[in-house]
Amino acid sequence: MSKIAFRDITKRFPGARRPAVDSVTFAVPEGSTCMLVGTSGAGKTTLLRMVNRLIEPTSGEIIIDGKNVLTENPIELRRRIGYVIQQIGLFPHMNVAENIRVTAEVAGGWTQRRLDVRVDELLELVGLPPVEYRRRFPRELSGGQQQRVGLARALATDPALLLMDEPFGALDDITRTRMQDELLQIQRNVRKTILFVTHDMDEAFKLGDLIAVLDEGKVAQLGSPVDLLTNPANEFVARLAGADNVMRQLEFLPVSGALDREQTVPFPGWENVPECAPNASLLTAMLKLLETNAPALSVQTGNDSRVGYITLASITSGITKTRNKERQLASERA
């Protein structure tokens, strides 16, 4: 069942030339991470802020757990949803523990003792040793550490839905990469439904189960990272997804899409080549080919259910195939 669904949701700001969000309809399954991507001004933030009603839609419905949020009390609604923003916005007069507690205090229903335990749990979860960090003030933390607290604060009440608006956008490259890795790690444990705004396609591909591409307020495409690479809906998506980004294709395209034709019977000399799973990335396969110096890899799931072979040549043609598709889309439009 879907956790959150947008139904024909539109936001028109007074005096704007076109709607910031234009009849958006899509759903995100429970426990998955949906990345909202698009160029600046595409309406990502507006769409996100309508979910917790920091912005009121002009028309349409937003359904969470089968209930239209527009019929709910906005204050109660926000207390059930985690919210993380790029500017973080920790309260400078509260220490780390207080900053995390306040979310749960506002939501209510927590005893002081449970809160103490919860704060320490969350600090552990985001990689800040409680003994060292509990009593620090925001000013005494680096940007990355502050955003860890921002994340811990959003998770304080254990919300099922998390809204994140370019949370790592202001961090340096190294810190950003580390935070992304840790979010993936955390997500493996907590399994939230996450709506995550970013304009960084690498981030979208890395973190997303689903990617919703927004263009001028409309959803240009909703799909998995692989969908976007292999079947971009239009030239805009193709360009954004990175048709020319060989590294991304290697990382995200599965071996199963780049098999050496229908070659299931081994060529002479291929009898003992190493194996490879069909859902492994082209990059994994390529590295294995280079490392082992084998002429091919046998692509198979279990023991002997071989689906085919993959070679350096078939990897190259697999990538070229996707790239040709982009070119074709581009020329169709021209």
Binding site: I75, Q87, R153, A154
Partner: peptide, 21 residues
């Protein structure tokens, strides 16, 4: 900091809570 106010609203503080806390 306007980000602190945004965060406060986002976590579901009422206007009064934002003012007092």
């Amino acid at each position: 900091d306007s980000a602190a106010i945004e965060a406060a609203r986002g976590m579901g503080m009422t206007g009064w809570q934002i003012m007092t806390r």
